[in-house]
Amino acid sequence: MSTPARTANRLPPATLSGREPAQLADVLERVLDKGIVVAGDIQINLLDIELLTIKIRLLIASADKAREMGIDWWENDPFLGRGRRGRLESRIQRLEEAAGLGNGDDRRPDEAEPRDRDQQGP
């Protein structure tokens, strides 16, 4: 079943002069995962960022699919929503548990392995 919305969802080719506003997933993929890592004075818990990135991406994916299908089951229908969303939520939960963030505030940042962001090492 091919929906017209699917084609509409695809961006027209971007131009070098006048571009479409970039899709959030593409921006996240670059700003958070790419670019050179320099050691700033403030240490950021990069694990926090990774988890947040996943959450934001899931939100985008859900919202876009719902719009595409013309329904918002993921918000309003707990029964229909269980299938896909449930899997995603358990995925987040697994990641949070693996990261030691399972109990919300009961979090110990020092447990999280910070990525090696200091390029001035030995």
Binding site: V27, V31, G35, I36, V37, V38, L46
Partner: peptide, 28 residues
Amino acid sequence: KVRAHEAVLEAALRGSAVVPFRFGAIYH
């Protein structure tokens, strides 16, 4: 903040070459 980061680098790109830094390089 990520969108602001991107917008600043896009402005930079319009003027010259740019080496993008990853999010979160903060100095005193």
